[in-house]
Nucleic acid binder design. Structure first.
Length: 430
RNA sequence: UCCACGGUAGCUCAAUGGUAGAGCAUUCGGCUGUUAACCGAAGGGUUGUAAGUUCGAGUCUUACCCGUGGAGCCA
């Protein structure tokens, strides 16, 4: 059984051997402090000249930043040390001496760091961020699993634009002409929900739009639940419960990581149900109160979203948007056909839209009309229309953007740090 | 696509139109409790590219290349 830093609590007073890398080193003549990392945490290893042979002392001295090595020593509790433990070293064995590591302990610019993304992932903050991302993804899966949802993966290669608006990545597809990378699993989730009742899809999605902001990637991950017999209110209830669950899971299990990220925990602790719910009309009122010259019928810009969300501690659900600015499949409000039964969730602290969802149009004739209005090729949607021909039911769903959620919960400014290898409009390496 | 800003040592940044510098990193030396350790020394440059103005350009002008932030669009 291999021991990792995260397990050291069970080995206090024992002599153990660990394998990992040199994170940083400080020395002071006859004592060396090796900051050692193994992927599970950080551990300060002390090499005293009197405690080890001359050869071992020299071997430790020769280790460069990010060299891989094996270290043996006595595990001691040490409240002052990061992680709470220290290792009194008795032996050091170099595995591979590293060349000069480009990322030094001092500050670097983003351009440089993103070029070194494959190495940047080893740094403390990026390590913590990826662990938070992992916990969020686990929370997503646990949440749906605990509620009897079935995972139904949707295709990544699709024959047409799902919502008919976005610019998609095009790829040649044998004798069938062009295919496109998916921008949403939405329509497939609807078909799946008619088979399993409650489902979710979870995978990468692609947008070829030339968005160049801190909130955009060309490739990002989205989780999309879809539920038969759910109306808009049921949909909003689920979205609320879902977000609370995710935030509380991270708070419970990733305290140390949030500390490394210097996240203000008190802000996350306020993310408790019930969340505020306002209509689009009310949101427009808020903007007008704040002196924004806003026209009913327009969509909110990034600045508008910040104004609206900054009124609340928890994410705010904005519902019933003008149907003109929403996708063709969203059901109109029977009480006011000018608006769609749609909901967007805006994260606090200016992180913007993290969820978009709606009740879907379940009436065949209305949906046919909508496809014509939007000038979409009906032949591509025949299978989708079948869902309304064979036992149509009211149903709803939403999509959550994983990277924006990670950015919000971690308190990270730029979305590019929230995914291991970001894809942006002017960058597709490393 | 549009607007703004930037490009000088491996990295982060200085440098009135007048000899291109510092900190970190690297190498060497010193130090038995450091924690972005500290102290001393050394090596390290076609100032994004091209042209122009000038006695003289990192600095001024023009074009181009690359990048960053934002807008629009969106999750």
């Amino acid at each position: 059984m291999k021991i990792r830093i995260c397990d050291l609590g069970k080995h206090v007073g024992e002599t153990v051997t660990l394998k990992g890398w040199l994170f940083n080193k400080r020395k002071s003549g006859k004592v060396q402090f090796l900051m050692f990392r193994d992927g599970s945490g950080l551990l300060q290893c002390i090499v005293f000249k009197g405690n080890v042979s001359e050869e071992v002392f020299e071997e430790a001295k020769a280790l460069t930043q990010e060299s891989s090595f094996e270290v043996t020593g006595l595990v001691k509790e040490e409240p002052r040390a990061f992680g709470g433990f220290e290792l009194d070293v008795t032996n050091v064995k170099t595995i591979s001496k590293a060349e000069e590591f480009p990322i030094t302990p001092k500050e670097h610019g983003v351009e440089f760091l993103i070029d070194q993304r494959h190495l940047w992932l080893r740094s403390k903050k990026q390590w913590a961020l990826m662990r938070v991302r992992h916990r969020i993804v686990k929370a997503v899966r646990d949440f749906f699993d605990e509620r009897d949802f079935t995972l139904m993966d949707s295709p990544i290669i699709t024959p047409n634009a799902c919502e008919g608006t976005s610019t998609l990545f095009e790829t040649p597809y044998f004798d069938l002409g062009s295919a496109y990378l998916t921008q949403s699993g939405q329509l497939y989730a609807e078909a799946s929900a008619m088979a399993h009742g409650k489902v979710y899809t979870f995978g990468p999605t692609f947008r070829a739009e030339k968005s160049k902001t801190r909130r955009h990637l060309t490739e990002f991950w989205m989780v999309e639940p879809e539920m038969a017999f759910y109306d808009l209110n049921d949909d909003m209830d689920l979205a609320e419960e879902f977000l609370e669950y995710i935030v509380q899971s991270v708070l419970k299990d990733k305290k140390q990581e949030l500390e490394i990220l210097e996240r203000d925990i008190s802000k996350l602790e306020k993310v408790k149900r019930p969340f505020p719910r306002i209509s689009y009309d009310q949101a427009v009122e808020i903007l007008k109160e704040n002196g924004v010259d806003f026209k009913w019928g327009d969509d909110f810009g990034a600045e508008d979203e910040t104004i609206i969300s900054s009124r609340y501690d928890a994410p705010v659900l904005v519902h019933r948007y003008p149907s003109e600015i929403k996708a063709f499949y969203m059901k109109r409000d029977p009480e006011n056909p000018k608006v769609a039964l749609a909901v967007d969730v805006l994260a606090p602290e200016g992180y913007g839209e993290i969820i978009g969802g709606s009740q879907r149009e379940d009436d065949l004739e209305l949906l046919l009309g909508r496809i014509k209005e939007h000038d979409l090729p009906q032949e591509f949607f025949e299978w989708y229309l079948d869902l309304r021909r064979y036992g149509s039911v009211p149903h709803s769903g939403f999509g959550l953007g994983i990277e924006r959620t990670v950015a919000w919960i971690s308190g990270i400014k730029h979305i590019r740090e929230t995914i291991p290898f970001p894809r942006m409009i002017y960058r597709n390496t490393p």
